[in-house]
């Protein structure tokens, strides 16, 4: 039974800690994150800017910028250890078994390279295709992501495309080698709602067609509601809640998740002029408070929250819904 369970896991991250080097010494930005993605599952990773959601994913691929490094933790992908893998092996995983879609297609695409060549690159280097084969596949990929006139479009340079089209090209590159896992880091943040809806539908369709797992990193809880199976909520470099999507929206437990959901205005709600908000601001990296990082903004904070860090504990019988909060724990014990 144990082996059946581990086989289901595509990505398994345990206790990942990332530090930034500063003049005052190392500052922890990702603090012991545990997360996993099952085969065929779509995971939403939600958090505000600076919560460490992008760094977590970049560190898996050892793509961290200078002065930022992994201090602790394990990451296994498809049964292999990503941390001890040689650079040579890792290069085959990057863009091969794990596809990436970054936030800003303008800075992630090479401006002086035709998009057809950028699409063909991983196919030639990682899949050993000939130029001709790769080119045919590039045309196919552009068609797959809904770019009309793809035979001519492979000749285009990034600046000749609109923002939505560029993001589609990014997705096509991410999908080029038919990855087992697609990591999409805020892929629609820079786009208009109409284009955003197109991209979300596109990824939904492709996921089913290709049977891949997806990690969708975002700050927008509304955007991923209809897209993901499970959501992990990050705050100041820690996982504060992890739950199946329906459970999270219907029954949020952590006060941060609750505050976040309450501060998002809904179209379907009766308009009330004032919005619910969470007071204060997230802590800066390196100036994290002792105890629970959310305690200074938390309406339920108790004495223990300011001295001890709560662990991510199961709060449902099935164990699929977990939260890191002393107040939630206390309420459960009382019930």
């Amino acid at each position: 039974m144990m082996s059946a369970k581990t086989e289901k896991r595509l990505l398994d991250v345990k206790g990942l800690t990332v530090e930034i080097e500063t003049r005052r010494g190392p500052a922890v930005v990702v603090d012991g994150i545990d997360l996993h993605v099952d085969k065929g599952e779509t995971l939403g990773v939600v958090g505000e800017s600076g919560c460490g959601k992008s760094l977590t994913m970049l560190s898996l691929m050892r793509l961290l910028p200078n002065k930022i490094r992994v201090a602790k933790g394990k990451a296994r992908f498809d049964g292999r250890d990503l941390q001890t893998m040689s650079n040579r092996e890792l290069r085959k995983v990057r863009g091969g078994d794990i596809g990436f879609v970054f936030q800003d297609p303008m800075t992630s695409l090479n401006p002086v390279m035709r998009i057809g060549d950028q699409l063909a690159e991983p196919l030639i280097y990682l899949r050993g295709m000939s130029r001709k084969q790769a080119r045919a596949r590039a045309v196919e990929l552009l068609r797959l992501v809904g770019i009309p006139g793809s035979e001519e479009r492979i000749q285009a340079y990034p600046h000749e495309l609109s923002g939505g089209m560029r993001q589609r090209v990014m997705i096509a590159i991410g999908l080029a080698c038919e990855p087992k896992l697609l990591i999409a880091d805020e892929p629609t943040t820079a786009l208009d709602v109409t284009i955003q809806a197109q991209i979300v539908d596109l990824v939904k369709g492709l996921r089913e067609k290709l049977g891949m797992s997806v990690v969708w990193i975002t700050h927008d809880l509304a955007l991923i509601a209809g897209l993901v199976d499970r959501v992990v909520v990050l705050y100041a470099g820690t996982v504060v809640e992890d739950a199946p999507v329906d459970e999270l929206y219907a029954n949020p437990q952590h006060p941060y998740t609750r505050g976040l959901l309450a501060s998002i205005p809904k179209l379907s709600d009766a308009p009330a002029s004032r919005l619910n908000s969470i007071g204060g601001t997230p802590p800066e990296p390196g100036r994290r408070p002792e105890g629970c990082p959310f305690a200074p903004r938390c309406p339920l904070a108790m004495d223990i929250c300011r001295t001890h860090v709560p662990k991510l504990e199961p709060i449902s019988a099935a164990g699929s819904h977990r939260a890191a909060c002393f107040a939630v724990e206390k309420a459960r014990e009382a019930a």
Binding site: Q196, A197, D220, L221, A222, A225
Partner: peptide
């Protein structure tokens, strides 16, 4: 119609 809502079943 393009605006997403925080309601998974509806979405």
């Amino acid at each position: 119609s393009a605006v997403p809502e925080t309601d998974p079943a509806h979405e």
